[in-house]
Design a protein around this nucleic acid. Structure first.
Lengths: 234, 234
DNA sequence: ACGTTTCAAATTGTCGACAATTTACGGTGA
DNA sequence: TCACCGTAAATTGTCGACAATTTGAAACGT
C-alpha cells in the first residue's frame, strides 16, 4: 500500500459512519479537498450561487456542506456577509502547533496505556514502510510529510478517546494538511523525525505513557521551533 | 458583580462578534442554553418540524442553528435520521477531562508568558470575590462550580491563542456546563480548589509557565480522579 | 478632485413545498 | 405467539422563490 493510499484510507475511515449518502456529504468532502489543496484560494470569498451552480445543487444543500466546513475551521462565516476560506498565517500555524503539542502529547500518553499489541505492530510496520520508501526516493519531502501525518493519525486513533480523535483527526488535521499543501515547507527535519518516531513507538511499546507524551511534545515542538526560526529570519 | 453576572458576561463576550443579528443566531443561543440546562433532555431526538413550530421559524433557519450546535458537540447527527441531543456518560466525562488537562495546561503555560499585569489583577480579583462569597454562603456548590469555570475561562482568554480559545471557550465549556447542570456533582473539592487556584495564579504571576501548566493539569486531574473514584465505587 | 449620498445589483437570510428515506403499524403466514 | 413483510405516516433531504441586507457604482455637491 502506498503512502497516499494509506492516507486516503485512514482519512476515509476517520469519517466514521460516513458512507457518503447525501449530496451535501459529497460536496463537503470534495470541497474540503479542494480547499486543503488550495484549488479554492485561501482568503477567497465563497459565492453561494456560483458554487451551487458549479456542483449543480441548491443553495440549501450547499450551505449544509459549508456549515460543516466551518466546523473544521476551513471556512469562516460572518452574519449577512457569508463564508470565506480561512487565511493561513505563520502566527496561526504556531497556534496550531501549540494545540497539537498538548493534544497529541495527551493522545500519545493514552495510546501508551491502551494500544493493543496488534495496533503497535501496525504502527511499527508503518514506520518501516516510511523508512523504506524514504531511502528509495529521498528528498521527496511531500510524501514524507503526509506519511508523518499518517503516523500521528494512527497514534491518536490508539488513544481510545473519541473526543481527542474528533478534535484532531476530523478537524485539526485538515488544517494541518492545508498548511502543508500551501506553505509547502519541505521540512529539513525529515531524517531526524524518523528517529523521533522510532523513540515514540518504543515508549508506547514499553507502556511508558509519561515518556511517550514528553517525546511527542518535543517532536511537535521541534517543528514549531523550525517555523519560528524561519519567521524570525525573514 | 455577582458570579452569575460574571459568567453571563464572560460567555457573552466569548461569542466575539455575536451581536445577535440573525434569527438562527437567537435560536442557536437559546437552544444551547436549554440543552445545557437539560430542558431539552439529553439523548432526546430533535424533531425539526416541532422545534421550528416552537420557535416560529422555518426548518431552514432551524437547521442552521442545529448545525452550529453540532459543532459544539451538543448535538449529534446521523444522515437521513436527524439530530439527537448528546448523551452524557461518565466515560465521556473522563474523556473531556483528559482533553481539558492537556489544553488548559497549555493555555495556562501560555497565559503565564503573556498575560498582562492588568489581566493578572483581574484574575486575582475574581479569586478573591469567589473566596468572599464562598465564606458567606458556603455549601452553595452551584455558584462555586460556575465560578470555577469562570476562573478557567479567564486563563484561557489570557493564552492569546485563538484556536485554544475557540476550542475551549466556544465549544468544550458548554459541554462542561451541561455536565455540571445535569450530573450536578457538588464537588467535595471546593475548599481545596481555592488553594489550587491561588497557586496557579502565583505561578502565572511569577511567569513560570512550566509550573503553571503542571499545577493546572493536576488541578483538573484531581477532578477527574474524583469522578473515576465515584465511578468505581458504584 | 474628493467625499457623500442614493440607488440598483448582488448576496445572504428565510420561507414553504416537494422528493427521498426512514419509521411505525397493521396484516399475513407459519 | 412470533417473525416477517408491506403499506402508510412521519421525518429528513433538496429545491426554487422571496425578503432583508450588504455591496458597488453612479450621481451629486462642495
Amino acid at each position: 500500500m502506498s503512502h497516499l493510499q494509506t492516507i486516503i484510507s485512514n482519512f476515509a475511515q476517520s469519517d466514521g459512519a460516513s458512507v457518503v449518502t447525501t449530496r451535501a456529504d459529497t460536496v463537503f468532502v470534495d470541497l474540503r479537498q479542494r480547499i486543503v489543496e488550495g484549488q479554492v484560494p485561501m482568503g477567497s470569498k465563497i459565492s453561494e450561487p456560483e458554487l451551487a451552480r458549479h456542483y449543480d445543487i441548491s443553495r440549501s444543500t450547499l450551505r449544509d456542506a459549508l456549515s460543516r466546513l466551518e466546523g473544521c475551521g476551513l471556512l469562516e462565516r460572518k452574519a449577512n456577509v457569508g463564508y470565506r476560506v480561512v487565511t493561513l498565517s505563520t502566527a496561526k500555524l504556531i497556534d496550531i502547533f501549540r494545540v497539537r503539542e498538548s493534544l497529541e502529547g495527551m493522545a500519545c500518553h493514552l495510546a501508551a496505556q491502551c494500544m493493543s499489541t496488534e495496533q503497535i505492530s501496525e504502527l511499527k510496520a508503518l514506520l518501516q514502510e516510511h523508512e523504506r520508501s524514504e531511502s528509495l526516493q529521498q528528498g521527496e519531502a511531500y510524501f514524507q510529510q503526509e506519511g508523518d501525518l499518517d503516523f500521528h493519525f494512527k497514534i491518536v486513533q490508539g488513544s481510545n478517546n473519541s473526543l481527542l480523535i474528533r478534535l484532531l483527526c476530523e478537524e485539526l488535521y485538515f488544517l494541518v494538511r492545508m498548511y502543508r499543501y500551501q506553505f509547502g515547507m519541505a521540512s529539513p527535519r525529515a531524517k531526524k523525525a524518523f528517529g523521533e518516531h522510532r523513540n515514540i513507538i518504543q515508549a508506547i511499546e514499553d507502556k511508558d505513557g509519561e515518556l511517550a507524551e514528553i517525546l511527542m511534545r518535543r517532536h511537535i515542538a521541534a517543528s514549531r521551533l523550525n517555523v519560528e526560526k524561519r519567521m524570525n529570519t525573514q
